[in-house]
Amino acid sequence: MRKPDGKIVLLGDMNVGKTSLLQRYMERRFPDTVSTVGGAFYLKQWRSYNISIWDTAGREQFHGLGSMYCRGAAAVILTYDVNHLQSLVELEERFLGLTDTANADCLFAIVGNKVDLREEGAAESQEEDGHSPGMASGGCASLKVSKQVRPEDAVALYKKILKYKMLDEKDAPAAEQMCFETSAKTGHNVDLLFETLFEMVVPMILRQRSQGPAQTVDITSYKPPGRTKAGCCA
């Protein structure tokens, strides 16, 4: 297994499109997805670096895993659905706390996904479920009026995050640079999002390397139990 040089983690409520964004970027397509179980990751080679990108599960059930996934992260992508204000609220209330384990200089990107649905309005929000419009529609009725998210809301959240991290706005990347609106469906801004982050993460990797031994332990070489002598077989 190649050892990743840096880690980027996607966080956000279920159904906002984390998996779709990653698939769009990595596989250049927009397939049907199923709600993620546990988590998954991709290795992306960027220049000479291996960057692992973790897709986490938004479902409440797996919420507890978030902290571990974020441990040592160089960047966190906080994802919401631009058609559901609640998904943005959740970022602050549920997900921000998970990032405490990330690197001290961790970057934050705020990503509003599904912009392709925005024109169609909230009334059609049920459509984007894609799966079963009839299912559990009782709980859905109130959600149909859920408000659209404006870009300012994302910027405001970004500033709150800086406060939460006790960072000076001057020292952190500008909000305009770190707030994205994307569509995994059309591919809008998806490359921009990931590649902007890669570009910013690479210098962090270099900085970390120059600061001596990594904080993480190398566990790249799996040894079947029982073989205690090292170095006999490459």
């Binding site: 297994m1 179980v37 059930q61 040592g72």
Partner: peptide, 18 residues
């Protein structure tokens, strides 16, 4: 949780997907 087999290293991070 949820029937996952999770991997964790002594550093407290996961290097394999569950």
């Amino acid at each position: 949780p949820g029937g996952l087999g999770m991997f964790a290293t002594v550093a407290g991070i996961s290097q394999r997907a569950p």
